[in-house]
Simulated scan of single mutants.
Amino acid sequence: MRIGGSTIPDPRLIEAIEGAIITVNGDLRDWRLDRLAEGHALLSAVSPDEVNGEKALVVIWKRAVMAFAAADLMETHRDVSATNEGAKRAEEQAPTACDHRRNGVHAIRDILGVTRTTVELI
Rank of each mutant, 00 (worst) to 15 (best):
N25K: 03
D30K: 02
H40V: 05
G19I: 01
E75I: 09
A45M: 07
M74C: 05
A41G: 15
D27I: 01
S81C: 06
R32F: 03
V59W: 14
I22S: 12
D34P: 05
N25C: 05
L43Q: 08
N25W: 00
V51K: 13
L57D: 09
M66F: 15
L43S: 02
L42H: 12
I22D: 13
W31Q: 02
A67P: 15
E38Y: 01
E38D: 09
E75N: 09
A82M: 11
D49M: 03
V59I: 12
I60Y: 03
A41E: 14
P48S: 07
T76H: 11
T76G: 07
G86Y: 03
L57A: 05
V80K: 15
E50R: 00
P48R: 08
A82C: 06
L28Y: 02
A87R: 10
A20T: 12
A82V: 11
R35M: 13
I22P: 10
T83P: 00
A56C: 09
K55L: 08
L33T: 02
A82N: 11
R63H: 12
D72M: 09
L42T: 12
A64L: 07
N52F: 14
E85C: 07
R78C: 00
R35I: 04
I21P: 04
L73C: 07
G53C: 06
N52A: 10
H77L: 04
G86K: 05
W61S: 03
A20I: 11
R32G: 00
S47L: 03
S47F: 03
L42I: 13
D27N: 04
V46I: 06
A56S: 14
A56F: 07
T23I: 12
H77P: 01
R32L: 00
A41Y: 13
D79F: 02
R35H: 07
W61L: 06
A69E: 11
V24H: 00
A56W: 07
E38V: 08
